[in-house]
């Protein structure tokens, strides 16, 4: 039996997001050989972005070239998605779990009368054929397995969890779907205006986090941590010692009483690794610890450790990262 999967691509500033290609990777991970994978792109850049999207392994890409969908509202986007899913006769809609993707998933599920699972990191089938999904819960402190008990499902996959497929030479057709599903639907959305934050990624969503602890010794020295984070494009975190001392605001705190993070790479600088901190970051994929005390508990949860003076190591590491990443 052929199942149909609709993968939703997300376009920002005219470019298809890498996480949308990962969504295709996720679709391919659960699709059988006879299943048909289709894509949906909306907005004025849809047609231009469709070849790259299709090259990830889609049989066709539907485009809704409605200018009003350049930065679609959840309301408008959900209508476009459900219309496309219905047109394609899909059983499964997969989208990237970006801020916008997570925002729209619930709407699509309710409108399409489908099940919905977000934060998906692995996709499989249970013995009875039901979709079975893994997803981190409790800030990454545990993993939940969920089975879908409905004929249709919407999945939002966690960024970085699935590899983006290598591009293939694709002759997948780009089909045009009609617009008219935009915000004029009831005219309640009045407009957008982009205000670039520029302060680095959000601690909770970042792929890389660099955190400083008591070993940083003073508020002023925290700039060392921030420079390393900037070189890596990372979010900045801190241990409770730092926020208790008032070196950085509480919003930086990673740990039991702060935020839980699960980045691909977590760099702990001058953090001894109190349990209260560990529970907030131990589920990171790769952990690097830099500490002067070889006995510090952080080294037991870390993958790579450097014992040494952070005031010497961190600037050297920042220079090396900048060199390798070609940052002036």
């Amino acid at each position: 039996m052929t199942a149909r999967v609709l993968v939703i691509g997300e376009i920002r500033d005219g470019h298809l997001l890498a996480s949308s290609l990962e969504a295709v990777g996720a679709a391919r991970a659960c699709a059988g050989p006879s299943d048909r994978l289709e894509g949906l792109l909306v907005g004025p850049a849809a047609a231009a972005a469709s070849p790259a999207f299709a090259a990830a392994g889609l049989a066709s890409v539907a485009c809704v070239a409605d200018a009003a969908l350049e930065r679609p509202t959840p309301w408008a986007w959900s209508r476009a998605i459900v219309a496309a899913a219905t047109a394609a006769g899909a059983e499964l809609v997969i989208l990237a779990g970006t801020a916008a993707g997570r925002d729209v998933a619930g709407r699509v599920a309710a409108r399409w009368e489908a099940a919905a699972v977000t934060g998906v990191t692995a996709i499989g089938r249970a013995p009875g054929g039901r979709l079975r999904l893994s997803r981190p819960v409790f800030g990454g402190r545990a993993t939940q397995e969920v089975e879908v008990a409905a004929p249709r499902a919407v999945l939002a996959v966690r960024p970085h969890a699935f590899p983006a497929p290598a591009p293939t030479a694709s002759a997948a057709p780009a089909t045009e779907l009609p617009g008219g599903t935009g915000p004029e639907g009831d005219g309640r959305i009045l407009g957008f205006e982009h205000v670039e934050g520029g302060a680095g990624p959000d601690l909770g969503d970042a792929a890389v986090v660099v955190s400083g602890g008591r070993g940083v010794r003073a508020a002023d020295n925290f700039s060392l941590i921030e420079e390393l984070a900037r070189s890596l494009g990372a979010a900045v975190g801190a241990s409770r010692a730092v926020t208790d001392a008032g070196w950085r605001p509480v919003s930086y705190q990673v740990g039991q009483t702060g935020k839980s993070v699960t980045p691909q790479l977590y760099v702990a600088v001058g953090i001894s690794g109190a349990i209260q901190h560990l529970v907030g970051m131990v589920s990171s994929r790769v952990i690097v610890a830099i500490n002067s005390d070889a006995q510090a508990p952080i080294f037991r949860v870390a993958d790579y450790g450097i014992v040494g003076d952070l005031f010497a190591i961190v600037p050297a590491l920042t220079r090396e990262v900048r060199r390798v990443r070609g940052i002036a």
Partner: peptide, 9 residues
Amino acid sequence: TTQSVGFRL
């Protein structure tokens, strides 16, 4: 529409 079937640490 969904069912939690596993919880792992």
